[in-house]
Simulated assay, not measured.
Amino acid sequence: MFLQALATAVPPTQFSQSQCWDIVEKSPVRARLQKRSRLILHSILRGDHGIATRHFAAPDIEKIFDRSSDELNVIFRAEGPALAARALTAALAQANLKASDLDALLICTCTGYLCPGLTSYVSEQLGLRTDAILQDLVGLGCGAAIPTLRAASHVLAAQPGATVACIAVEICSAVFFLDDDPGVIISACLFSDGAAATIWRAKPGPTGLRAFDFQTHHRPADRDKLRFEHRDGKLRNLLDRAVPQLAASAVTELWAARGPRPVARVVAHPGGRDVLEALAPVVAPYSLDASARVLRDFGNMSSPSVLFALEETLRTATPTAADGDFWLVSFGAGFSAHSCRFGV
């Protein structure tokens, strides 16, 4: 399937990591944390751990750790569709299309649950036709963007004349949780909000670039190393210290199965500084600098992040038949990893 447009969006409110520390300092939750936990927070937010700034959609972010589960769901219901719609509106403008031109809309998220899903809200806001296919993918975590593209390719295989939009959107600020668990603390210092929208057709677009050769690898035995659980009605992220090596091991499986076509660039989900450092030897000598820049400027936005990294890579390079394809890889809850090629 061929790319027609790629656009991203983040909330307008931006915070430096130092400002995030100031928020924690003023929050009532600080008094509930052990001294060790406060020291971890200070070390990450006031040190250099690969993230400079993050964007949050939740209003009054200083109150986020004391909001009820109902209040957090209200935030997701308001901000998730709005941010997704912003990204898709920009993608439609790039492709010179109207929302009514879309035959299908697929949205992935893991930071909130709505029924009907985000597609219902976005289709209403933007004015999709009432016969457009709407499909929501939930539960795939940070790796969800590539499986969503794979699902879009199946829609286009069944309906070659269709125009399909995909959105990866996360409001991580609506699932912020803070206690004395190191993984929970790191999650609060790592994640942020963002959305990425792509539009696809079965025929070449302006660039002639396509996504193909989708692969996946999942390890249910490692499920508890990275997943959400429910605590007091809220989503609480479980993040094991082994995640960087789990990611590297899973990506190794996909990298070994990539096939003989040449690769020009590797575009990886920027899951964190330690994650990128663990991935580097797996894909050497390919650089992960674009992913590191996305991490620096936006933090880990979960599922949209790999598409932000693709957008960043496309600023300075384009896949060609002579040089090879871009190889995209994402990973997350499951434990799972997913890849595809992006080229001519």
Rank of each mutant, 00 (worst) to 15 (best):
F342Y: 08
D136K: 09
A321I: 05
A168Y: 02
P147S: 02
T130L: 14
R231M: 09
L126S: 07
A82M: 10
N96M: 02
I107L: 05
I51W: 03
D232R: 08
L254Y: 10
R341Q: 03
C189D: 09
H42I: 12
R129Y: 06
A85G: 08
A31T: 09
A242I: 10
L307D: 02
L254M: 01
A57E: 06
M1V: 13
V275H: 03
R36I: 15
T8P: 08
R227W: 03
S287G: 08
L295E: 12
V329W: 03
Q125S: 15
L328D: 07
L72I: 09
D222Q: 14
A151H: 11
L279C: 02
I23E: 14
A82K: 05
E253S: 12
F15R: 13
L246T: 10
S18C: 13
T207W: 13
A85P: 04
D136R: 03
P304Y: 00
A85Y: 00
I186Q: 03
F76I: 04
A188H: 08
I40M: 15
P281N: 04
R236L: 09
L106D: 07
R315W: 02
S339D: 03
A247N: 01
A93W: 05
A284I: 02
A144L: 06
H154T: 14
A309M: 10
T89D: 14
D180N: 11
